[in-house]
């Protein structure tokens, strides 16, 4: 079934700093004054496009019995990014944006904002993401990167998946009730590397290398 997804035209601004996501691996924050436009699915708000100031902190580190691999990413969110999932917190903490609010975030006027937001939104939908995760308890973020690509982050319950360029990180948070045995498997062939560590997996589609 094809869903009708489009961007709303009434911008709002955040009244205060908000933490959009926080868990053991990732924190996404946005600052007061950030502009938002609703993403409408069949007429209902199911997400937002946000543009302003914020930060993504992600520990893209895989723990294996042979040692840790990866790095921590800290990215300033100064480009429009998309968020699907829980929308109530944003809706409850915004007010209609004024021309001054748009100017503060570097937009000439409403039209300028809408053109740039729609451009980012259409880039996202064109790039095979026409069906973002809209399940219960699932949050999806899409960050437009300087090299015209999208980094996608999906969280559901205790799981987190992050894809960036040709790398896919899959994390599962250990809980008290979960007995996880440290296992590792490395497969490097045909230009792909897969590392399965403790509660997490790294798939590198662009590297045929061995780490251990």
């Amino acid at each position: 079934m094809t869903r009708h997804i489009k961007l709303g035209k009434q911008p709002h601004k955040l009244n205060k700093d908000l933490t959009l996501l926080e868990n053991e691996k990732c924190v996404i924050t946005t600052q007061e004054g950030t502009l938002t436009l609703p993403i409408l699915v069949e007429g209902n708000t199911r997400g937002h496009i946000l543009t302003g100031k914020g930060q993504l902190t992600l520990d893209a580190i895989i723990e294996t019995p042979k040692g840790a691999i990866g790095k921590s990413l800290i990215t300033d969110l100064d480009q429009p990014f998309l968020m699907f999932g829980t929308v109530s917190e944003i809706s409850e903490n915004t007010a209609p944006a004024t021309a001054q609010d748009m100017s503060n975030m570097g937009y000439e006027n409403l039209e300028d904002l809408l053109v740039k937001a729609n451009d980012a939104f259409s880039q996202f939908t064109i790039n095979s993401h026409k069906h973002p995760k809209l399940e219960e308890n699932t949050q999806t973020f899409a960050f437009f990167t300087p090299d015209k690509a999208w980094d996608i982050l999906v969280t559901k319950e205790d799981k987190l998946i992050f894809t960036s360029k040709n790398k896919v990180y899959i994390f599962k948070h250990p809980t008290e009730n979960t007995q996880l045995h440290p296992q590792h498997l490395q497969f490097a062939e045909n230009g792909k590397t897969i590392i399965i560590g403790k509660n997490n997996i790294l798939i590198d589609l662009d590297a045929n290398h061995r780490f251990f």
Partner: peptide, 18 residues
């Protein structure tokens, strides 16, 4: 060694173990 930015834990890396 590598430090997690979110939790702040320190982890030994593969070269570190070696």
């Amino acid at each position: 060694v590598i430090q997690e930015r979110v939790r702040g834990r320190y982890l030994i890396t593969i070269p570190g173990r070696m």
